[in-house]
């Protein structure tokens, strides 16, 4: 319980940092911390394969790409524009609180009493995940691979100056 509390506090603070820091590099760093702590929360849920995949995919690849683009476009320096205070900011925070309140009412009304894990402890192991992924979910898996291929081709088309 205490471990979860500490981890979730770090995750929430890091998430706040993503929104509140004006420098994109600091935002990205906060997001890395957030994803990293999330991976440990996944370990706590006994889904260790997805936890380690979280680190490989998100912190190891996606966030490095983000940092690469920030540094390539040189957006991180002090010459970045200041965020203006305007009506949209108030609207955004109001919307956020409303959203949180709506979801929270449902969460606390319905899910307080699920305090016993139902799935077996081994349900997040590579063996269990692989078995289901390559039998029951093999078509979605193949479609996801085609999606990734399209993503590769699309990003090369976008990023290359001339083909």
């Amino acid at each position: 319980m205490t471990v979860f509390m500490v981890l979730s506090t770090i995750a929430i603070l890091a998430a706040l940092g993503v929104v509140l820091f004006s420098s994109p590099v600091r935002s990205a760093l906060c997001l890395v911390f957030n994803f990293f702590t999330l991976a440990f929360i996944y370990f706590g849920l006994k889904t260790e394969l997805l936890g380690i995949t979280q680190i490989v995919v998100y912190t190891g690849a996606i966030m490095v790409l983000f940092l690469f683009v920030i540094m390539l476009l040189n957006l991180g320096g002090p010459q970045t524009w200041k965020e203006r205070f305007e009506f949209r900011t108030v609207l955004g925070f109001g919307f956020g609180f409303a959203l949180a309140a709506v979801i929270a009412s449902q969460v606390f009304a319905n899910f307080q009493y699920f305090d016993k894990p139902q799935a077996p402890d081994s349900f997040g192991s590579p063996q269990a995940l692989g078995r289901v992924l390559f039998t029951h979910y093999v078509w979605p898996f193949e479609i996801a691979s085609i999606l990734l291929l399209i993503g590769i081709v699309g990003s090369i088309m976008l990023a290359k100056r001339k083909l």
Partner: peptide, 20 residues
């Protein structure tokens, strides 16, 4: 039982020190 993936994951974090 995710030993080798753990190594890949942590070694991929090595880039942050350099980039930051």
């Amino acid at each position: 039982n995710i030993g080798i993936l753990y190594i890949l994951a942590i070694s991929s974090l090595g880039v942050y020190g350099v980039v930051l």
